[in-house]
């Protein structure tokens, strides 16, 4: 496992009678961004869910480096509309300060921190979801279409955070259909049909 966070060996997944992918193998080295590309319905989300362990593989194996941890942000935000961004984040980290910092890092203005999330726009809600990345010192970020509904400014901010994350030895697996603008880190691309 040296130098690798995840090793994926010959995995396959069939949905009903439709085979999404089969005999798929790849690694996730340290300090690397792996982009999963493919058309709508090609199985990007499923692959990410298999890697994260939400779904179980029908065939093949996924080896995680047992000493590390990871954060998964799905294409749904997993935030509760009735609660404020801070209240949502406090579930993952009890410190008010840490939560506020995380929201600032993603660029959510202070005045939005305490109002219920249903009053925020789709992009702002996405920011709340992404700010969870900064609450845990996860080695691997698993992101499903992280840039949906984000403005240019926040996309650039996220790109900078990704570059910083990889320069510290962290890695990310990102399902996204548009090319990433990351320049400073190693990008591997995986296209599934």
């Amino acid at each position: 496992m040296t130098g690798q966070y995840v090793k994926i060996e010959k995995i396959a997944y069939t949905y009903g009678t439709r085979s999404l992918f089969s005999d798929l193998s790849f690694n996730l080295p340290h300090g690397c961004v792996l982009q999963i590309m493919g058309k709508n319905g090609s199985g990007k989300t499923t692959l990410l869910q298999l890697i994260s362990g939400i779904k179980t593989c029908q065939e093949g194996t996924i080896f995680w480096d047992k000493t590390i941890h990871y954060t998964y942000i799905g294409h749904k935000n997993a935030i509760k509309g009735e609660l404020s961004p801070i209240e949502n984040l406090k579930l993952y980290n009890p410190s008010d300060n840490k939560c506020r910092q995380a929201l600032e890092m993603i660029g959510l203005e202070l005045r939005h921190h305490l109002r219920p999330c249903y009053m925020l726009s789709a992009g702002q809600q996405r920011k709340v979801a992404l700010s969870r990345l900064f609450l845990s010192d996860a080695h691997v970020w698993l992101l499903d279409e992280p840039f949906t509904a984000l403005d240019e400014n926040t996309k650039n901010r996220m790109t900078l955070h990704l570059e910083k994350h990889t320069s510290n030895g962290g890695s990310a697996i990102i399902a996204a259909h548009e090319p990433l603008k990351i320049q400073k880190s190693v990008i591997k691309k995986l296209v599934i049909k």
Binding site: I54, Y72, A78, I79, K80
Partner: peptide, 13 residues
């Protein structure tokens, strides 16, 4: 299930 929160419960340590 609808807001994806369940996946966070599932992946929680």
């Amino acid at each position: 299930v609808e807001d994806g929160f369940l996946t966070q419960l599932l992946l929680s340590p």
